[in-house]
Structures are given as structure tokens and as C-alpha cells.
Amino acid sequence: MANNPAEIRNMLRTYGKQLTNAKRLARFRRALKMSESVDVVTISRQARRRELIEKISREIIENLIVSGNENPVVSDILEQLELDFGERYLFEYPLDGSDVQVLKESAEGVIDLPPEEKSVIMNRLWEITLEKVDRTML
């Protein structure tokens, strides 16, 4: 058994990543089951583009930002969020499987945001992500 604190931290980080991946797969499976019964609908090119932008943005927020991915798009989104609010935020899924937690780095350490502030941050994160994906798509 590992006695070194660094080894224990590394093991917990690995378990955390595995848990995040399992949650992501569960959400993906639920989305697949829900989409199986959808009828075929003809929509305009602009509507399809908007739908694709929203789908990619949702994927970025649910998976890449929460997993701490070092993707340049994710870095740009988080930098813009930090510029807008003047604070650095962390996003993670709790072990109980509930919604994403928004944490703020402060002088006292990392604190969980109240629901009202979390809502404001998540809305702005969504807007920034939509803008970024829209600009980078062909």
C-alpha cells in the first residue's frame, strides 16, 4: 500500500479521472437513449449550425472544462471568464453524481459558490463557449 502522500494524491487523482469518465459515459448513454426516438426533421442550414455549436459547447463545458483538459480552446474560455469576473474558477463533478460544482480560488482557499453566483458564472461560461465555438467553426 502507498504510504507516500504524493502517491496517495496521484492514486486519488487517477480514481477521480476514472469517475469523471464514467459519469461522462453515463450521460452520453442517456443522451443516446433519448435521441433514438427522435423523428427526422428538416431544418435550415443556420439552424443546423446553431445546433452543432450548442452541442460542441455543451461537450466542452461538461467534459473538457471539468476534466481540466489543457486544450487551447478551453484555456481561452477560462481566461475570458477570469477576465470578465476578475476571479479564477474551478469546475468539478462531486462524487455523488450531482451537477457540476463551481469553485472559486480565494485567499482562504477554494470555496464553493452559492447557487445564485454559480448560475451567473455558468450562464457567462455558456455565452463565452458559444461565442468561441462559433468563431472557430468554418
Rank of each mutant, 00 (worst) to 15 (best):
36 E>T: 04
83 L>T: 04
102 V>S: 07
77 I>V: 02
14 T>Q: 14
103 L>R: 09
32 L>F: 12
50 R>N: 01
62 E>F: 07
42 T>D: 05
12 L>P: 02
53 I>C: 09
134 D>C: 08
16 G>F: 04
69 N>C: 04
96 D>T: 15
61 I>C: 01
22 A>H: 06
53 I>A: 13
132 K>L: 01
5 P>M: 06
3 N>K: 14
40 V>L: 04
37 S>T: 15
1 M>H: 07
56 I>K: 08
79 E>H: 09
138 L>C: 00
42 T>Y: 05
115 P>D: 06
80 Q>D: 05
100 V>N: 03
45 R>A: 05
18 Q>H: 13
16 G>T: 10
116 E>P: 10
111 I>F: 02
87 E>L: 07
107 A>L: 13
6 A>C: 02
88 R>N: 08
5 P>K: 14
50 R>A: 10
41 V>S: 08
51 E>M: 15
92 E>G: 04
46 Q>D: 15
96 D>G: 08
73 V>Q: 11
26 A>Q: 14
8 I>R: 13
4 N>R: 07
127 E>L: 11
81 L>F: 06
113 L>I: 03
61 I>G: 04
35 S>E: 10
10 N>L: 10
135 R>T: 05
90 L>K: 10
46 Q>K: 03
125 L>W: 01
28 F>V: 02
91 F>P: 06
138 L>R: 15
